[in-house]
């Protein structure tokens, strides 16, 4: 998966400094500091309610952080939101499509929101990438849950953004399509796109992500590669015999001292 690493120049695409966000008095992000580089698939991990979606919605300019600073490709997220939006593609955790429109019209409609013009042929090509070409003329309301998710992903790719913010995009998608989508995302990363990818899927974490960040109750517990994670865990005196157990340990960090099942 790191086959294309050398080709891509390392450059910080996303810089998050001390970002906090509160809903009421309850913090959903607390002092998160993180750097994500160009050409990287960065996995955001954490149990339910950890703040993954909150982080992604801040990066996608939907939410405003209560404190801290975010820079995306050198642009200040707060002051240059419009310029940032040109460069990002956001896949929300929930499907965001017009149910009464066809697949084709949904893609056309979403394309109207981007700066550049996208031809129908390009949209059809995108539709093929997510294997929905047979549903091109069908209403979204008639699609299965997994198909909607595929279209949900495709809608974020329309304007060929440099940064993809994907919030559990492949939930409910069949294994074959998921592998294909993963491959597609890997290709995008190889071509210099930066991808922030939130997931609960162990195989995606291990096969797709170059680096991971582990959130717990809004606090970033760890960020780095799997190898770095292993090192850290080792230092704590735990020797996982598989990557799965390593991830398990990371996500359980609160109870890290307890032995694993």
């Amino acid at each position: 998966m790191d086959a294309c690493d050398s080709e891509v120049k390392r450059k910080a695409m996303i810089q998050i400094e001390n970002v906090s966000k509160y809903y009421g008095k309850k913090p959903s992000l607390q002092g998160v500091t993180l750097k994500i580089e160009k050409g990287e698939v960065f996995g955001v991990l954490g149990p339910n309610g950890a703040g993954k979606s909150t982080l992604l919605s801040i990066l996608s300019t939907i939410s405003k952080p209560a404190a801290g600073r975010v820079e995306i490709n050198g642009l200040d997220l707060k002051k240059q939101a419009k310029l940032v939006r040109e460069q990002i593609g956001y896949v929300p955790q929930d499907v965001a499509l017009w149910e009464h429109l066809t697949v084709k019209d949904n893609l056309i409609f979403w394309s109207k929101f981007s700066k550049q013009r996208v031809s129908k042929e390009e949209l059809y090509e995108l539709c093929r990438t997510v294997r929905l070409e047979e549903k091109w003329n069908e209403k979204v309301s008639s699609l299965s849950g997994g198909m909607k998710r595929k279209l949900n992903i495709a809608a974020a790719l329309i304007h060929n953004p440099d940064i993809l913010l994907m919030d559990e995009p492949t939930v409910g998608i069949d294994i074959q399509s998921k592998l294909e989508i993963n491959q597609y995302i890997r290709d995008l990363a190889c071509h210099g796109k930066t991808i922030v990818y939130s997931t609960h899927d162990m195989s995606e974490i291990l096969s797709l992500c170059n680096r991971i960040g582990v959130l717990k109750s809004g606090v970033l517990q760890f960020s780095g590669t799997i190898a770095e994670a292993r090192e850290m865990v080792k230092r704590k005196g735990f020797l996982p015999n598989s990557d799965e157990k390593l991830i398990y340990f990371l996500l359980q960090s609160e109870r890290a001292e307890k032995p694993l099942p």
């Binding site: 300019t61 939907i62 419009k82 929300p92 929930d94 965001a96 499509l97 929101f113 304007h159």
Partner: peptide, 20 residues
């Protein structure tokens, strides 16, 4: 119908929600 997740997503686009 659209004010939930659709409006949120539109906020992340170039033309944005106000324009929409």
């Amino acid at each position: 119908r659209e004010k939930g997740v659709l409006f949120l997503r539109i906020q992340s686009t170039y033309h944005g929600l106000v324009s929409y």
